[in-house]
């Protein structure tokens, strides 16, 4: 640890939260690439680690707007796994629903070990929910969708993290996946400039192209996040070299906290050093995606949409 100048972070909320205090204790500049909870930053006065990825509450917020403005749903059932990331997603749903005056028909979490979602989905239907949102990881997205289909539940919108964005989802569920909405942080098709390094730019499309050449398949968001975080750190190190002719931890860190701009992954910008929530991501955006004819289409926000949203599930 003592000879390290900067760190890439582990995958996931729990791991990042676990290493956060070590990083802060030792003072190593880090851009946490895939962590969606706020816990490591919220009120923590972080001084060394910034959040590169976006935050959990943003994941499905857009779907609430979509449900209100396009699907004309009167209420929402929030159903989510009781672990850090889905809790954050549900916080976002709840906050946006309240803000927009959408009635909350059900708000319930379930244990990580749950394997049968049908009682909970039946409960949501009994309570008359028209928009069902939440989830957790892959099994939940599939399980909730199946459970809803099994009881003939008709919804105006069904939006689930994170499994619904997984390409496996449509393979496993086929026709049932049609019309299910999800959330994506990044897609190969999105146009981002990336960093402008000494005149040469590595934009998202360049990254996707070289990834495909190397691995013969489309990159997933975690690869993009890792690459983007790498771009950011490289830039931070360059900046430090330029100013002090060496890799200085303090300068690298300052760059991570002050920089506001774009990587191939999208926008980056965090709460400035010295504030209670320092390091927390504030600029990264999320899209609502929807499976339409076996393809993943961006349907929200409107200005980035690749297709019109479908209303009503199942199709």
């Amino acid at each position: 640890m003592d000879r390290v100048d900067f760190l890439f972070s582990p995958y996931g909320s729990e791991l990042t939260a676990a290493v956060a205090s070590v990083i802060e204790e030792l003072g190593v500049p880090t851009a946490a690439s895939i962590v969606a909870t706020l816990a490591p930053w919220k009120g923590k006065n972080a001084k060394w680690m910034t959040q590169f990825s976006s935050t959990a509450p943003l994941y499905l917020m857009g779907s609430v707007d979509l449900a209100i403005e396009r699907a004309e749903a009167k209420n929402i059932a929030i159903l989510y796994e009781d672990t850090p990331f889905p809790i954050g997603v549900a916080d976002g749903l709840r906050a946006r629903a309240k803000e927009r005056g959408l009635k909350i028909a059900m708000d319930e979490k379930y244990d990580k070990a749950l394997t049968d979602w049908s009682p909970l989905v039946s409960k949501a239907r009994s309570l008359g929910a028209e928009f069902l949102a939440g989830g957790g990881y892959y099994p939940a997205a599939v399980g909730i969708t199946r459970a809803a289909a099994g009881i003939g539940y008709r919804l105006k919108l069904l939006a689930l993290v994170v499994g619904a964005a997984d390409p496996k989802f449509v393979k496993d569920l086929g026709i049932l996946a049609e019309g299910v909405a999800g959330s994506d942080i990044w897609l190969p098709s999105v146009k981002t400039r990336g960093f402008v390094v000494e005149g040469a730019t590595i934009a998202n499309e360049d990254f996707v192209r070289s990834y495909k050449e190397e691995f013969k398949r489309d990159p997933e968001y975690w690869s993009a996040a890792g690459y983007g975080a790498g771009q950011l750190l490289a830039q931070a190190v360059n900046d430090s070299l330029k100013r002090a002719r060496k890799v200085d931890r303090n300068l690298t860190r300052d760059f991570l906290f002050n920089f506001s701009g774009e990587t191939i992954y999208g926008d980056y910008g965090v709460v400035k050093l010295g504030q209670p929530d320092a390091g927390m991501q504030v600029r990264k955006q999320h899209f609502v995606i929807q499976w339409q004819k076996g393809k993943k289409e961006v349907v929200w926000p409107r200005e980035l949409a690749s297709a019109e949203p479908w209303i009503g599930w199942p199709r």
Binding site: Y138, P139, V142, G143, R146, A149, G150, I151, G152, D172, L173, G174, L176
Partner: peptide, 11 residues
């Protein structure tokens, strides 16, 4: 990886 399949999934 979690597994499952769809069988007789209709109300």
């Amino acid at each position: 990886d979690p597994r499952g399949f769809t069988w007789l999934l209709y109300p």
